[in-house]
Deep mutational scan, measured.
Amino acid sequence: DHWHVHIDGERIRLDGASEEFIRTLEELIRRGTDARELKEIIKEYLR
C-alpha cells in the first residue's frame, strides 16, 4: 500500500507504513502535535 500525508504543505510518502502507524499518526494529528515534530516521527519510522 502507498500512503502519504500532507504536513505543512509538504507531501510525505509513507511507503510500507503499517495501518497501526497510520492510526498513531492520525491520533497525534488529532492531539495537535506540531508539524515539525510529526515530520521527525515519520523520518524516524521510515529509517
Results as ranks from 00 to 15, higher is better:
I41W: 09
D15A: 08
D8K: 05
Y45L: 10
D34R: 08
K43I: 12
Y45H: 14
E37A: 13
S18T: 14
R36Y: 14
E40C: 04
A17E: 03
I29G: 01
K39V: 09
R36H: 13
I41R: 09
D8Y: 00
I29S: 03
H2D: 14
L46G: 03
L38T: 01
R31F: 10
T24L: 12
F21Q: 03
D15L: 06
I22R: 13
L14I: 13
K39F: 11
A17K: 02
R11Y: 15
A17R: 02
T24C: 09
G9W: 03
R11P: 13
G32L: 03
F21I: 07
L28Y: 08
R36G: 13
E10M: 06
E27L: 08
E19Q: 11
E26K: 12
E20F: 05
T24A: 13
T24P: 00
V5C: 03
R13I: 15
A35H: 09
D8S: 06
E40T: 10
L25D: 00
G9I: 03
G16V: 07
W3R: 15
I12C: 01
R23Q: 12
I12G: 00
H2Q: 13
L38R: 00
G32E: 04
T24M: 14
A17F: 09
H4M: 04
I22W: 06
R30D: 08
E10K: 07
G9K: 05
R23W: 06
S18D: 12
E19W: 07
H2M: 06
R30E: 08
A17M: 09
R47D: 06
L25A: 01
E20K: 08
L28R: 04
I7F: 03
R23K: 15
R13K: 11
R36P: 08
I41A: 08
R23H: 09
S18M: 05
L38Q: 00
E10V: 06
W3I: 13
D34G: 12
G32M: 05
E44N: 08
L25S: 00
S18A: 12
R31Y: 06
V5Q: 03
D34H: 12
D8I: 02
S18H: 12
D1W: 02
L28I: 07
T24F: 13
W3F: 11
I7C: 01
L38Y: 01
F21C: 01
G16M: 07
I12Q: 02
R47W: 06
R30A: 13
E40A: 13
D8P: 02
D1F: 07
L38D: 00
L14W: 02
D15Q: 11
H2T: 08
I7D: 01
I42V: 09
G16A: 04
R23T: 07
W3L: 15
K43P: 02
G16S: 10
H6N: 12
H4W: 07
R13S: 15
R30F: 07
R47Y: 09
R13D: 15
R30T: 10
R30I: 11
I12D: 00
K43R: 12
H6W: 05
Y45R: 10
A35L: 10
I12V: 11
L14T: 02
I41P: 00
R31S: 13
E37K: 14
E40Y: 05
D1L: 12
I41V: 10
R36S: 13
F21G: 00
E26M: 08
H6K: 10
D34Y: 01
L14G: 02
L14Y: 02
K43A: 15
R11M: 15
L25K: 00
I7M: 06
Y45Q: 12
L25E: 00
K43V: 10
V5Y: 02
A17Y: 05
L46Q: 08
E19K: 11
D8E: 12
L25N: 00
L38G: 00
R13Q: 14
A35K: 08
V5T: 10
R36L: 12
R31A: 12
D8Q: 09
W3Y: 14
L25F: 05
D15E: 13
E10Y: 02
H2L: 04
E27K: 07
